[in-house]
């Protein structure tokens, strides 16, 4: 995961006691997901930043009452969603997550597979090329930049689910509960997001021509 944070007990104590260094760590670790999450409810990036800001102000107010029934992160994200929903409906922007019907088109272009009249219908025409390892620092940085750009270009809901799952490390159940979506829809969004990032990496490795 991007940022390693202490346990919830330590975080909560830190927030209550006004530990600035720890709060800065939390901002670094969670802001990306929080902005994306907010952006899935409101209409502009600026509006999403304000939602994140209002969320933290509400957290400062409410942290004394945090009882640890969920993880701190889930608790904070729920506050954010409440604030973002209100703001989204004021902006008349909200398409509720629950009403979402994810796109189920193939995630790998059908031109990669043999046609219905082939001897092996649905088989690879050519196998995917193996990727090189990225042990070198330069290559690792480039790969990271490629992945970051790929995430950024995903539809917002895919960004949100991918970030919560694969960067924040939340469980599928947590994400479904947080966003109020079905297990199946969560998985479709996650799968589409991962497949799109994979395909971007594939193009990157093909273009750099690094031998595996």
């Amino acid at each position: 995961m991007g940022v390693v944070l202490p346990t919830d007990d330590v975080l909560v104590d830190g927030l209550r006691a006004g530990d600035e260094e720890m709060f800065a760590c939390l901002l670094n670790g969670w802001s990306g997901s929080m902005v994306r999450l907010a952006r899935s409810f409101v209409s502009t990036a600026a509006s999403a930043e304000e939602v994140v800001q209002d969320t933290w102000l509400a957290v400062f107010q409410g942290i004394e009452r945090f009882e640890g029934r969920s993880s701190l992160q889930t608790w904070v994200y729920r506050i954010l969603i409440n604030i973002a929903r209100k703001r989204g409906s004021a902006e008349q922007r909200t398409v509720p997550w629950a009403s979402l019907v994810p796109d189920r088109d193939p995630t790998v272009d059908s031109s990669r597979f043999r046609g219905p009249h082939d001897q092996y219908p649905g088989g690879w025409l050519a196998f995917p090329e193996r990727w090189p390892s990225t042990e070198g620092e330069v290559l690792a940085n480039e790969v990271r930049a490629t992945v970051a750009a790929a995430i950024q270009s995903l539809p917002i809901r895919q960004q949100v689910v991918l970030t919560l799952r694969d960067i924040d490390g939340q469980t599928a159940d947590d994400v479904c509960a947080l966003l109020d979506i079905s297990t199946a829809n969560q998985r479709v969004l996650l799968h589409r997001a991962r497949a799109a990032v994979r395909s971007r990496l594939e193009r990157y490795f093909a273009a750099t021509g690094v031998e595996s």
Binding site: G29, S31, G32, W131, I151, L201
Partner: peptide
């Protein structure tokens, strides 16, 4: 490659807030 993709996504630096919002929040805290 899908496994590798998941691992690479986990390595991405989380994005940040704008400096103004970040400074304002640190000050508010």
């Amino acid at each position: 490659q899908m496994r590798r993709t998941v691992a690479e996504v986990g390595q991405v630096e989380p994005e940040s807030l704008s400096d103004e919002t970040r400074d304002r929040l640190l000050e508010a805290f």
